Simulated scan of single mutants.
Amino acid sequence: MLFKYLSVVGILSTICVGHGILNFPKSRGNVQWQGTCSAGAGCKGPCDSPKADSPFNSQFNEKTTYTRGQEIEVSWKRLNHPGGFVRLSIASFDDSDNWDSFNNNVVKYTCYETNCGPDDPNDNTFGHLNGPGSQKCSTKLTIPDNLADGSYTLQWVWYGGGIYYGQVDTSFGEYYGCSDFKVSGGNSQTSDKPEAAFQGGDITYPNTDSCKYWGSNKVGDCNFGDRQPSPKDGELLSQSLEPCMHGPPKQGKPDGM
């Protein structure tokens, strides 16, 4: 009995470590939240740090350059949490502190666990396929042809993720990350803005037009508004506003898809 108890405690501590971070292309990063941007911790986006703090501003920073029509990989680590959606949007670098610029220029939605999952698929401590694991997750993104040559920002949003501190019927708040880049050449520029695409199918619902998620399927529902946490000495959970919502996992598409 003691061994079983210690095993569960060990798994719980593992599943609570680390949260959603854009891995590639490299995100701006930040100092205040140790590189992450969690709405529950008080980081409200739209990026992990404001435009003024982006390394892109430095003349010594090597700028990543893509061409129109180029397909790139966008990746993140699962970091011990299952479920949810990833939304990818592109705005001009100059407008990258503006939420509307990203909300109006969504390029793609996909499942958070689109091609990744738990380390042990038979571990059902927190439910079917909800165990710990930090596999690489990724999707492909094509640079839209309507972008003129210039400087842009890719926004990555994870929302609808689940299981906060071992509570299987809880959803996380949103996480944000941004990567700055330049567009130069490639396909001829067009005036038509592409419609947002949705790539469904994840570890729980493979080969379907859906994803597993908790809480809400809409960006903005779990950003906690203007609220900020009120940390108290010795109370770890007071450092966050989490969880966002309560309820069992669901199957579905992003709002509007």
Rank of each mutant, 00 (worst) to 15 (best):
G20R: 04
G20H: 15
G20E: 13
I21P: 01
N23Q: 15
N23M: 07
P25E: 06
P25A: 04
S27M: 13
R28V: 14
R28E: 14
N30E: 10
N30S: 12
N30L: 12
V31C: 07
V31Y: 11
Q32F: 11
W33D: 14
W33A: 11
T36G: 15
C37R: 12
C37V: 12
C37L: 12
S38R: 13
A39R: 08
A41N: 15
G42K: 08
C43N: 08
C43A: 12
K44C: 10
G45Y: 03
G45E: 10
G45N: 07
C47L: 06
C47F: 06
P50N: 03
K51W: 00
K51N: 04
A52G: 00
D53R: 06
F56K: 09
F56S: 06
F56H: 12
S58K: 08
Q59I: 03
Q59F: 01
F60G: 00
N61P: 00
N61A: 12
T65D: 02
Y66L: 11
T67W: 00
T67K: 15
E71M: 06
E71N: 10
E71P: 01
E71W: 00
S75L: 03
R78L: 13
R78M: 11
H81L: 06
G83M: 09
G83W: 05
G83T: 08
V86D: 11
L88W: 08
L88D: 04
L88C: 03
S89M: 07
A91F: 01
S92Q: 12
F93G: 05
S96Q: 05
D97T: 04
N98S: 07
W99T: 06
W99K: 13
D100S: 15
S101Y: 04
S101E: 11
F102W: 03
N104S: 14
N105W: 02
V106E: 06
V106S: 04
V107K: 00
K108R: 07
Y109W: 15
T110F: 08
C111K: 11
Y112G: 03
Y112I: 01
E113W: 14
E113N: 14
N115C: 01
N115K: 08
C116K: 01
G117R: 04
D119F: 08
D119L: 06
D120N: 15
N122Y: 08
D123L: 15
D123S: 02
T125I: 04
H128Q: 11
H128V: 10
H128I: 09
L129T: 08
